[in-house]
Computed example of a mutant assay.
Amino acid sequence: MLPGNFHGSTGQSSSSPYTVTVNQTTYQPGDTIQVTLSGTFTYKGFLLEAHEEGQNTAVGTFSLGSGTGIVLVPCNKIAASGVSQSNNQPKSSVTVTWTAPASASLGNIIVK
Rank of each mutant, 00 (worst) to 15 (best):
S93M: 12
K91Y: 05
V73W: 05
Q55K: 00
F6Q: 13
S38F: 00
I109M: 03
P3H: 04
V35R: 00
T57H: 05
Q24R: 14
E49L: 14
T40H: 08
T21H: 05
L72Y: 08
M1G: 14
G67K: 03
E52W: 00
T19F: 02
V59N: 03
I33T: 09
T21E: 09
T10A: 14
A100W: 01
V59Y: 02
T21K: 03
S84K: 14
I78A: 03
Q55T: 00
V94R: 08
G60E: 04
V73D: 11
M1I: 09
Y27H: 02
N108C: 01
P29L: 02
T99R: 08
H51S: 07
P90M: 08
S13M: 06
P74S: 15
S38T: 11
I78Q: 06
S103K: 01
T42R: 07
G30Q: 06
N87W: 04
H51P: 12
N108V: 09
T99M: 02
S13N: 10
V73Y: 06
K112C: 12
T25E: 11
G82E: 01
L48C: 03
P3C: 08
T19V: 13
S63T: 15
A100F: 01
M1E: 12
S66D: 11
P101A: 06
G8K: 02
G107L: 04
N5C: 13
G65L: 11
V73R: 07
S63K: 05
G8Q: 09
S86N: 12
G82V: 00
L106H: 11
H7W: 14
S81K: 00
Y18L: 04
L2G: 14
K91G: 01
V83W: 01
N76V: 08
Q28I: 03
Q34N: 15
N56E: 03
I70K: 01
H51G: 07
S15M: 10
V59S: 06
S14L: 00
N56Y: 04
S63W: 04
V94S: 10
T42E: 14
D31G: 00
T57S: 13
I78N: 04
T25P: 11
A100K: 03
G45K: 13
Q89S: 15
T10I: 12
T99Q: 10
V35G: 04
Q34L: 08
G82D: 02
T68W: 01
Q89P: 09
C75W: 07
N76T: 09
L64F: 08
